[in-house]
């Protein structure tokens, strides 16, 4: 009915269209998906700040700069005042810190580039996760090994629920480095041993044990009061809530 040439043309044309569609689908789908596209987002910051130096080498704990993460939903990016706590004396003349000094004198905040962001209809609360003794590294990765911080986890809803349902498989229990309060007194000689404080992330995942035996809808023990004598009281991590309004309110 059709000529041989026309038949061949249809086949080749179909194959080309199919291949182009496949490439567009792959690039579009995987390039835009959060779990693929967001991980590794590593924006250039106004100040060449190195977490590897400050927390890896100098062993400054997370909460020194991100103070207030324990009390508020938002983990604060440090104020310029926090930088100048040390940098009035340490490397006070460094040209790399010119932006910080200018900000300190003018009072205009440094415009850090935001890396981790959940959609605006998600109400993630840092303090609740800190109170459940979930280490910063569970979500932010080995920040003390990152010269320039990049996003480590996808921050998708599926990823959140993975952990809310099976925390014992995903959570890294609180480590002394993060400054997450556990209510436990550490031996000073352990703290002075930097390998105790800075275990690499892979080893930590290996040794992290279930914090609690999760039981549906309940915690191992009664939920302790939020504060005791004015001091925030941690609670054991259990399974997280799964109802929609826990995060989308």
């Amino acid at each position: 009915m059709f000529s041989r040439r026309f038949d061949m043309g249809v086949k080749v044309g179909g194959a080309v269209i199919g291949a182009v569609a496949a490439v567009v689908f792959l690039l579009g789908y995987f390039g835009v998906r959060n779990d693929v596209a967001d991980v590794g987002y590593r924006p250039e910051q106004p100040v060449p700040f190195s977490h590897k130096l400050h927390t890896g080498t100098l062993q400054i704990q997370c909460q020194y700069c991100h103070a207030g993460v324990e009390e508020s939903a938002h983990s604060p990016v440090p104020t310029t005042q926090t930088c100048m706590n040390c940098h009035t004396a340490v490397r006070a003349e460094s040209p790399r810190l010119q932006v910080v000094r200018d900000s300190y004198e003018s009072g205009q905040p440094i415009e850090w580039a935001r890396i981790h962001k959940v959609p605006d209809y998600v109400h993630f609360n840092h303090s609740r996760h800190i109170r459940a003794q979930i280490d910063c590294k569970s979500c932010h990765g080995p920040v003390e090994e990152m010269g320039v911080v990049s996003q480590f986890k996808p921050l998708t809803m599926g990823w959140c629920l993975d952990c809310h349902r099976n925390p014992e498989k995903n959570i890294i229990g609180a480590r002394p480095i993060s400054g997450v309060f556990t209510g436990k007194l550490h031996a000073v000689k352990d703290l002075l041993d930097s390998t105790y404080v800075f275990t690499p992330i892979a080893a930590q995942v290996g040794v992290s044990t279930p914090i609690t035996v999760p039981q549906f809808g309940s915690y191992e023990t009664a939920i302790p009061p939020v504060t005791v004598a004015g001091i925030p009281h941690p609670k054991k991590a259990g399974i997280g809530p799964e109802n929609c309004s826990a995060c989308h309110y």
Binding site: Q59, Q61, C86, F181, T182, G183, L185, L191
Partner: peptide, 18 residues
């Protein structure tokens, strides 16, 4: 109590130990 001392240690390690 150990709870108060642990809190003191935690805050000391965060803000003073640097």
């Amino acid at each position: 109590t150990e709870f108060v001392l642990a809190r003191g240690q935690n805050r000391f390690n965060v803000f003073c130990a640097a």
